[in-house]
Structure formats: structure tokens, C-alpha cells
Amino acid sequence: MPQGLQLFPQQASTIAKHVDWLYFFLIAVTIFFATLVCVLVTFFMIRYRRGAKVDRSNPVNHSTTLELLWTGIPLVLAMVIFAWGAVLFYAIQTPGQGAMEIYVVGKQWMWKLQHPAGKKEINELHVPLGKRVRLTMTSEDVIHSFYVPAFRIKKDVLPGRYTTLWFEATKLGTFHLFCAEYCGLGHSRMIGRVVVMTPGDYEKWLSGGGNEEPLEVSGERLFQRLACATCHREDSKGRGPSLAGVFGTSVRLKSGASVVADESYIRESILEPQAKLTAGFDPVMPTFTGQLGEEGIIQLIAYIKSLARKPDSSAPPTPPTSH
């Protein structure tokens, strides 16, 4: 790793250069105003130092024009920065369609990452160049934060719920992965690497090594082992709703409300089946709290997601309406 004085991080994602442009604009604003204040202070300090023979007649103590001016100009500037930052934030928060999915589980003090094809990694994330990657993240214990400075992205990783993050790498190489939210003794050791490879190398890397099975296959096995299939039958005649084609659609609840069946909803329904009960079904499902780790839940979610992709799914998926 290069040593010596470095003053700027690498730009290695599609977002990075946009963040940097805004950063430079802010630096320009800072330099302008800081210089303005410092120059004026210095100038007055010298010109009006005690004993200097200068014109001090008619001192001004009040000027509504000036006050409006130096309230208005910063205000307009602040609104420009706000809007620019908000638009960029929207882009950072919205992954768009067709991203490849990677699951992240943080725990004291390591990152566990899993590719859709089933490949597992610890503290290392291999991703292909030029492809959108969406991370679905959760924590097994305290709050962590997934941070890749070269990509200019960061998101807290919370216990008990999912957060997401996306990026598209634009540069081959190895980049820092940090935990940015203080998480205890090993916080500063909870670091890793993101390795950006050409898509070809990535495929090679994926197929190399052990004989992992895809997440959805593990999930299907788990689904059978936990006997989920006895109630959640594909023919919609079970005691629970059929899960074919459910993912990503809007589900009507017993309470009358409706909710989009996303990762968080499925997670909650496994752990707290009665919290958001689907309309038309009885509250008979037992909780799986304590029987399933975060990784098991992720496998089940991957399986249920795969059911939605099957061509024979009955209803066309409704796009999510809110999030």
C-alpha cells in the first residue's frame, strides 16, 4: 500500500466524481467566505488600530441593507447547496433496476458477505467492474456501518432490520472497506477490502474454489427442513398464503392496510408472523425467532425471491408503491 503524504482518496465508483464535484464547490464557498472574513478583519485591524490617524467620523452601527444582503446571499447559496446535495443523495439512495444482489451481515468484528451464487467471503468483497451491486445488510449484534471511501458510500448496518446500499465500481483494484460506526473493542479491526475485477475474472473467481450452492438452493432446502411447505403450498390451498410470485408485490393485510413484500417484510413475517398478517389467513404460524440466524433468513429470502422470478407465477408483480 502506498505510504507517504496522500491528500485525496481514489475515485472508484460512478458516484465518486459527483460527490467530489460538490465537495470542490463547497471548498470554493468556504475559501471565499473564510478569506472574505479574514481579509476584512486583517484590513480593519491594521487600518483602525489604536493610534492610527484615520477618518473615524460618522461610524455606522446599523444598516438594514447590509443585514438583508448578508442574510440573503448566504441563504440563496445554502439553498443551492441543499438542492444539489439532496439530488445527489437521492441518486446514492436509489439503486435502480437490475443490480446484482449481495448480502452483508456485520457482527463484532467482521463482515460476512454472500454472493447470489452462494460464494461466501469474510472481510473481502469481490465485485465485477461496471456492474451495479446492491447490498442488503443487517447486523447480528450492534450497529455497524459499511463504508468504502473510494466509492464515497456509507450506510449503517442495523440489528433487526435491513438497510441497503448500492454502487458501481469504475476502477480495477483493491479498496478499503471500513466499519464507520463505533462497535466496540475491535472496531478498528473491522476492516476489509473490496476487490474490483473485470467481469471475466469475477466469473472465474466465482466458479473457482469450493462447491458452493446458490443461496436460493440453500434457502429451498431450509424451507423444506423447517416444513414451511406444509402450509405455504404452491397450489394456494395451504393454511398459509402461497409464496409463489409474492416477492415485490403489494400484500393486503388483515388489518386492511397493504404492504410491499420486500426483504424487511419477509424477515419480519418469519420472526413475527402475527405482526402483519395477510388478509384471509389465521394467525397460526409459529415464530422462528431463535431458530434461524441472519444467514438462514437471508437464504429463505433468496428462495422466496426466486419464486417470484419463476415464469409460472400467477399474478404479474406490482411495482412497489412506497418505501
Binding site: 447547496i81 446535495g85 439532496a86 463504508y147 458510500i153 456509507k154 463505533y182
Partner: peptide
């Protein structure tokens, strides 16, 4: 305060 930049420099 600026959202887009704070994501990077937060914490």
C-alpha cells in the same frame, strides 16, 4: 449538512 457529501464524510 449537505446530504450528498455527508454520506462520505459522516463518522
Amino acid at each position: 449538512a449537505c446530504l450528498g457529501v455527508d454520506v462520505h464524510v459522516h463518522d
